[in-house]
């Protein structure tokens, strides 16, 4: 464990909590892409199956349980509890356009052709594109509430910190996980455009980030 990865995991946790609290306190999921949250719950489900097979550390186990619980709670709030505030019309990204390539790629590129490895690879590739429905929804509505942008900022920060973690691990312990790194870099690139908007718009203290 290094400070970059710890900060990344904390930033990821903060993002998830920001979104969950926003939905719970405003009792509304307007402007939130339920599809992205479903994809994130699928990412955690397919990646954390090793909860039942290997024990790595208390931190690892606790964080996996927390991420699974919070992501399912978020999906529950969107599709059950506050479903009448769910903006399905604007949440119109065709997730099959993400799932089919990701499933195909995880069958082509993996470390071992075993269920656990293929599912893990699937979760890595899926996480890279899971935010697309949310970013698409923001471009469609043309704006994002500032809390939603904070959510995206911390998600992007988590990915940027993971890249720093991989650089650090490569130089200190020669660690290099090709699938995770390639997919992680692609995922981080998707946030770059948003980061620019976030810094130029939201930091100016405007309540909503409206896209140009």
């Amino acid at each position: 464990m290094n400070v970059f990865r710890l900060a990344g995991d904390v930033s990821h946790l903060v993002a998830i909590i920001i979104l969950l609290l926003k939905i719970w306190r405003s009792r509304s999921c307007a402007g939130i892409s339920g599809k992205s949250q479903l994809l994130f719950a699928l990412v955690f489900t397919t990646r954390y199956l090793d909860l039942f097979t290997v024990y790595i550390s208390a931190y690892n186990t606790i964080m996996k349980v927390v991420f699974l619980a919070l992501s399912y709670a978020t999906v529950y709030l969107i599709y059950m509890r506050f479903r009448n505030t769910y903006d399905s019309e604007n949440d119109s990204f065709r997730v099959e356009f993400l799932l089919v390539p990701v499933i195909g790629l995880s069958f082509l590129e993996h470390y071992a052709f075993t269920p656990m490895e293929v599912l893990w690879t699937f979760s890595i590739f899926l996480e890279a594109v899971a935010i697309m429905p949310q970013l698409f929804m923001i471009t469609k509505t043309g704006e994002a509430e500032s809390i939603t942008t904070h959510y995206l900022f911390f998600l992007g920060l988590y990915r940027a910190l993971y890249i720093a973690n991989w650089v650090w691990r490569y130089h200190t312990e020669g660690f290099f996980d090709q699938i995770a790194v390639v997919s992680g870099v692609v995922q981080t690139i998707f946030y770059c455009d948003f980061f620019y908007l976030y810094v130029t718009k939201v930091v100016q203290g405007r309540s909503k980030m409206s896209l140009p």
Binding site: R5, I56, M63, K64, F67, Y111, E117, D177
Partner: peptide, 10 residues
């Protein structure tokens, strides 16, 4: 290439 190594990252 970390094939089969313990996946300790979240």
């Amino acid at each position: 290439q970390e094939d089969g190594a313990v996946k300790d990252e979240l």
